[in-house]
Structures are given as structure tokens and as C-alpha cells.
Write a protein that binds this DNA or RNA. Structure first.
Lengths: 252, 252
DNA sequence: TCAAAAGTGTTCGCGATACACCCATGC
DNA sequence: GCATGGGTGTATCGCGAACACTTTTGA
């Protein structure tokens, strides 16, 4: 119980240094086992899950706050991050409910009546992430995007809207490699596309996919090949940063 | 001076009923004289222009606030409205600067140190709009989108980002008729597209444009024709609401 | 040696583009 | 009547979808 009081003090201290009516929620996407994953946190002393999120320091740029929050949860400093929507339903959040979920007395609630939340989604390399809990949570781990449980507040809506935004952006921009290691094969990239677009394995034609991707002109084929697997060993590719920069400038 | 004090009281009253750290800014697009227009307001007693905006009542849904603000400035209840970005630079806004711009003593500033703003853009029928000032402004009128002056705060950035978002959405969705009266000709619609996409008159092929637009299947050709102009009188069209609804459902 | 995966090339069809032609209207 | 703008039809090009064929690897 004493520990709880300390935590409560820590939360209050952070909260007092932050904007009170605004928060950030992040939908962190990773790719593993040919599945799209989302990072979720379990609220302290409860079995309710939620998205990673946090507050914005009073002097902090909104986007900096999002990067900071993501660094705290994933350990990663360099991340593909995209603001996609701001959620402002007047009943989306409830300070007393947070207190209760944290096992704290609701009548001592110091959160505001209401908070609006800015939604970001992030694409990260799964294997580099070291999920870390925060003051308000006991557990942080990946969930399959198709098996997301019921989340606190409006977090299910935020997550599904993030996925929708991700799919839309995938249709118009080349982003898939943000979910992969530095070096990857084209078939690995194809799996990412198929998964995100909701297709089954092989749903995209191999030949056409490779032509399209290589047609962008910013992938560099390495002399290395991926070994270890059975059958013909595929080439490894990586992004050529200069050419990718040029591509982005042309398409923006 | 007495009038100013009354205004100040009104502003304070409204502000106290609203969220303090969050505001809404709207970029209202209209179409007139084959030009894309934006609605701007001139701050009281100054020659500085700004976007229409406002605060969110403490119990009000974010989106409802945006509709309310637009209704107050344009008189229109039914509007195509789209949230496109939330602006959170830590230096984007300054309460003391607002006071000064309003001709009020900065040391009496009651605005918060900082505010984050949610950006919406709206598409309206130019001829139906009756621009109306608010408590903080003297003048409300249309500006050509290519002649927007230097605006207060980060409003130039908000406006240019709205235009970018509008262009992007135009590429993927059929929206143009939101800027036109209920009945319109296909060439009028074509002008809207050309203007927004930054093309010159006739930049799109007439025949191809008509095929594409009619191919969507939700336009209804009326028996009426537009008269009065010289030369062959063109057909009038309007949206078939049922078919348009079906189109939206398929493409979302 | 053979099954399966990876790389490469070829064909086909559709949609976008360019453009031609005819029609209607006001001066 | 004719200049101009509006409506409609046709030829062409390019890209993506479908798929065939070759190459490489481990078992």
C-alpha cells in the first residue's frame, strides 16, 4: 500500500508538469511470425489492457511528446511515427474510472473531467523493441492485431482507426520496410504487404510485387543472400537513403 | 472603451465554459469566379488576419464544436467537414500576444500559456455563406487561396496543410460537388477539379473527365439545362443521395 | 534428383489519355 | 452563319494482373 502511495505521488508530479486536458495515445505496430502485432499495456492491479500513451509536458512540442512516450515504452529512439486522428468524444475518458482501474480511491481523483487524445501510430522493427511498463501498468507485450482484447476507454476505436489509416497510407506510399530489419528479402516485404492489406500468403503475385517495389528505385540489392532456409537463397535488400529521400520528395 | 470591457467579459465567460488548452481552427474553402477561396477574419482593432476558430465547451464533443464554430461564421448547418491535423508546437500560440492583438492589456492575460489546436477543413457552397464576425474580430470575408496574407500564429501553416490535405483527398475521393450548388454542370465541376489540383482551365480533358465522373454512378442528369450563357446549353446534374451513399460505403 | 522457393520474361485486358467529330446556342 | 462551348465516340498507350519458364537450393 505504501508503494501505491509513492506511485500516486509520482503520477501526480508528472501530471502537474503536463497539459491536463490533452493526452497522446500510440498504436505501435510490429511484424512477427507473418502477423501484424500491436503493443499493449495492462493497467496496474487489473486485467484491463490499454494502448501506450502519456501526457504532454507543458513546454513540450506535441510530436516530441509522442517520440518520448514511444522511447519510454519501446527503448527505440528512431521510429516511423504518424499522427492520424484526434479523439474528442466528450465521454471518451473518465478520471474517476482511471483511478478505479489503478486501484486508487476514485474520490481522490485529480485527473480532469475530460481529456482529448491525439492518436499516433508507429511502425517499428519488432525484434529491437524491449517492451517496458510505466507507472500505471504492470505488463507490456505484443498482441496479434486480430486478437486485440477489449481495451479501456475508446482505445479499441483508436486502434481500429489506426489500422485503417495504416492501410490507407500503405496504398499510396511505400512504408513496409519500416516494420523490417535493415536487411530484408523481397518476399519478407511481400508478406508485410499481404498481412497489412488483409490478404492471405501469396495473395500478391510475386513477380508483379517485385517489379512494383523495385520500380520505386530506392531499394539496393546487396551481394549477400539470405541463407539457412531451404531452397534457393534470396537476395537481401536495403533502403538506399539518398534515393529514398528523393522518392519522398517527389511524392509529397 | 466601455464596449471593450464588455467584450472582454464576454470572452472570459465563454472561455471559462471551455477547455482551456485546446482550440479548433477551421479552413473554410469556397469556390467562386473559378478560384478557390478561404474564409478569413480580421482581429479586432488590427489589420491582422486569422482563420476562423474557437474553443470547445467543457461538455461538448470535439466535432460538435467544429460544426458549431462553422455555423457561427457561415450560417450553414450542413457542411462537409474533415479533421486533418492537430497542431501542437509549444510556441505556436501565445496568450499575451492575443491580448495585445485584441487591443487589450497583455498583463491582464487570462488565456493559458499554451494551446494545442485541432485543424478542420470545410467545403461549402460559396453563395450560401454569410460571413459573420465573432467577439474577437471586426471583419470576415473570403480571400483567394493564392493571395492569403500573413496570418496570426501558425495559421499560414494550418492553411497550407489544409490545402495539401484537400488535394490529397481529392485524388482518392469524389468531393468536388461539396463546393457547388445543388445543381451544377459537369464543366463547372471540372473547373473545381482543375483549380484544386492546380491546373489551368482546360487542363483536364473534357470527355475523359465526364466519363470518369459519370462512371462513379452517383450523378443524376436532370432534364433541365443551364440557360443564359452563350453557346450550347449544358445539362444540369445533381447527386443522387442513395447512390452516393452506396458509393461511399464501397470506398471506405 | 526432385520439390519448392526465388528470379525473370511474356502476354493480355482494362483504364486513362489524346483527339476527332457532331450538336446547340447567341451574337 | 459562324464562333464557341458542350456532348459523344474512337484510337492508342501504359500499367498491372495472370502466368509461364528458368534457376537455385537443401534434403
Amino acid at each position: 500500500m505504501e508503494k501505491f502511495i509513492t506511485v500516486l505521488q509520482d503520477i501526480k508530479t508528472l501530471f502537474n508538469r503536463s497539459l491536463s486536458e490533452l493526452s497522446i495515445d500510440c498504436v505501435v505496430f510490429g511484424f512477427h511470425d507473418e502477423q501484424l502485432k500491436v503493443l499493449l499495456l495492462r493497467a496496474k492491479g487489473s486485467d484491463s489492457w490499454m494502448l501506450p500513451g502519456g501526457w504532454i509536458l507543458k513546454t513540450e512540442h506535441l510530436e516530441d511528446a509522442a517520440y518520448r512516450i514511444l522511447k519510454e515504452r519501446t527503448g527505440l529512439g528512431s521510429i516511423f511515427l504518424q499522427q492520424f486522428h484526434t479523439f474528442g468524444a466528450n465521454n471518451r475518458y473518465n478520471g474517476r474510472e482511471i483511478m478505479a482501474r489503478l486501484g486508487l480511491p476514485p474520490e481522490q481523483n485529480f485527473f480532469p473531467e475530460r481529456a482529448v487524445s491525439v492518436g499516433y501510430y508507429a511502425l517499428v522493427e519488432y525484434s529491437l523493441v524491449e517492451p517496458q511498463t510505466d507507472m500505471m501498468t504492470d505488463e507490456c507485450r505484443w498482441w496479434d492485431v486480430n486478437e486485440i482484447p477489449e481495451l479501456l476507454f475508446d482505445h479499441n476505436e483508436i486502434a481500429s482507426r489506426a489500422l485503417k489509416a495504416l492501410r490507407k497510407q500503405f496504398d499510396h506510399e511505400a512504408l513496409g520496410f519500416n516494420l523490417l530489419p535493415e536487411k530484408f528479402t523481397l518476399v519478407e516485404l511481400q508478406r508485410v504487404y499481404e498481412t497489412i492489406l488483409g490478404l492471405k500468403k501469396g495473395g500478391l503475385d510475386r513477380g508483379n510485387f517485385q517489379k512494383k517495389i523495385l520500380g520505386y528505385g530506392f531499394l539496393e540489392r546487396l551481394d549477400e543472400r539470405k541463407t539457412g532456409g531451404a531452397h534457393k537463397s534470396p537476395y537481401l535488400y536495403r533502403i538506399d537513403p539518398a534515393k529514398y529521400g528523393a522518392y519522398l520528395r517527389e511524392n509529397e
